Amino acid sequence: MFKKRENVAEIEEGKLLSPKFDNDGLIPVITTCSKTKEILMHGYMNVEAFKLTIETKEAHYFSRSRKQIWHKGKTSGFVQKVKEIRIDDDQDAVWITVDIGNGASCHVGYRSCFYRSVPMGKIDNARNIEMKFEEDKKKFDPEVIYKGQPNPTKI
């Protein structure tokens, strides 16, 4: 589907897209909000998900736990409308900027998957580091939205 990776100069300085997928056929993706610039989530795409994202201008990811492509927001209604796609210098990581309206990107119900911060400073006991919730309200109730569906993550 994409151009074959042939030499470093072409990959780093060329104009043709030659993404590098890992041994599992995946490429990491960071997703940010087009309005606030905040990081919404981190996910993965396989070749098909990347192609669908480019073609439809809506984010598609590959679920490692379910081993299938998912159209982000198809169930919750918070579809990620892609505004821009960028790829890093060696083409092994993708950054997409999306519009989610007044919706959310986190399956837990928060706007961003990065809804907690980790305190910094001296660590006395790493087992007792208490995080701070940066988002105090969920955008939706996951129990209602995903009723009867498998949990999108596995521990």
Rank of each mutant, 00 (worst) to 15 (best):
R111N: 03
Y44S: 06
P142Y: 11
G73M: 07
T31D: 01
F114V: 12
D90V: 15
W70G: 08
L52H: 02
A9F: 14
K83I: 13
K35H: 12
K20E: 14
S63E: 10
V47N: 08
R111A: 10
K132V: 15
A104R: 00
I145M: 08
F114T: 09
F114E: 04
K83P: 01
E135M: 12
M41S: 13
K137A: 13
V94G: 09
K35M: 06
E134G: 08
I123E: 05
K132H: 12
C113Q: 07
E84D: 15
D92A: 11
E134N: 13
K74P: 00
N128W: 08
F140H: 07
S18R: 12
G77M: 03
F21Q: 01
D141F: 05
G101M: 08
M45A: 09
F78D: 10
F62Y: 15
K132T: 15
F50N: 00
K137T: 13
R5E: 02
D99G: 08
P142R: 06
R66E: 14
K132R: 14
T32E: 09
W95V: 13
L17W: 03
G77H: 03
L16W: 05
G101Q: 03
M131Q: 09
I87Y: 08
W70C: 05
E55C: 02
R5Y: 07
T31I: 14
P142Q: 09
Y115C: 06
T53K: 00
K57V: 05
P142T: 08
F62L: 07
I100H: 04
V82Q: 06
V82I: 14
F133T: 05
Y115V: 03
C106S: 09
R127G: 13
F21K: 03
H107N: 01
H71G: 04
N125V: 10
E12D: 02
A93K: 01
T36C: 06
I96Q: 06
V98Q: 02
D22Y: 05
Y115G: 01
F133S: 14
K132G: 08
G109H: 00
K67M: 14
N46F: 08
G73N: 05
K132Q: 14
E38S: 10
H60W: 15
H107E: 01
F2G: 04
E58D: 05
T53Q: 01
R86I: 11
M45P: 01
D22H: 06
E130H: 12
V144A: 03
G103A: 03
I123L: 09
E55N: 09
G43K: 00
E38D: 11
